[in-house]
Design a protein around this nucleic acid. Structure first.
Lengths: 109, 109
DNA sequence: TCTATATTTCGAAACATGTCGAATTGTTTA
DNA sequence: TAAACAATTCGACATGTTTCGAAATATAGA
């Protein structure tokens, strides 16, 4: 059994590309539960936000936000599900696990 | 003490940007010691390569390789030091540690 | 000093990205 | 059904990225 990651190179590159934009990284951090305004960091506490609530933290046009969310979703970093008028966003835990392994491959051997 | 990462958002975005290109990610993986040709994965075994040796794995022009190495270096992901005619490249362990914390912040609390 | 080897810098072309406003789609409530 | 709210799609523009070849720089050895 190999930990070899080279075959997945393009997929990991796409994941890092999704995190390479400050706005997208901020979105991902918010969903990761890091530094919710008014709280101390409760890391590992994944938090759901609807698109509109995310927008209140970001100072970008709704269309731009939508574009960034699509990129995060396409990369597998977040899941988006409609609930009534709103669309809820959440970290995809499986992809988070894969990225952790990428940087810390010995830890799961 | 807070694990808050928001102040470092732009820096992390720059790190992920450096890893967002398949060629750069392959360079970083080679230096990380993952999947050296002819070996099984010996992860955590950071490996040094000179620029020319990296180029033999990549099928890109030397000038392009040089550009990518500069990006990885600027992001703090690798260190480059000249040794005679050659320039040796190696993973910067501190930045690797910071990225690990980004995805696994509870682990060091 | 001259030559060979290793790497970088420069300039240009092709391509991708981030951003917005306007228009559109989906959903709930009056 | 009509209006209001939430989010997305589309088209356009400015900016940034990837790539190369040619030229320049750095080092070692004859």
């Amino acid at each position: 059994m190999s930990n070899c990651l080279l075959p997945d190179m393009d997929r990991y590159a796409a994941v890092f590309n999704a995190l390479s934009n400050p706005h997208r990284l901020q979105i991902y951090s918010l969903l990761s539960g890091c530094c919710t305004p008014g709280t101390t960091c409760e890391l590992g506490t994944l938090t759901d936000y609807c698109v509109g609530d995310l927008g209140e933290h970001l100072d970008i046009a709704p269309s731009t936000l939508s574009h960034h969310l699509k990129e995060l979703s396409n990369a597998g970093l977040i899941d988006m599900t409609r609930q009534g008028k709103q669309v809820m966003c959440a970290v995809n835990p499986q992809t988070l696990g894969e990225v952790r392994e990428f940087f810390n491959p010995a830890a799961h051997a």
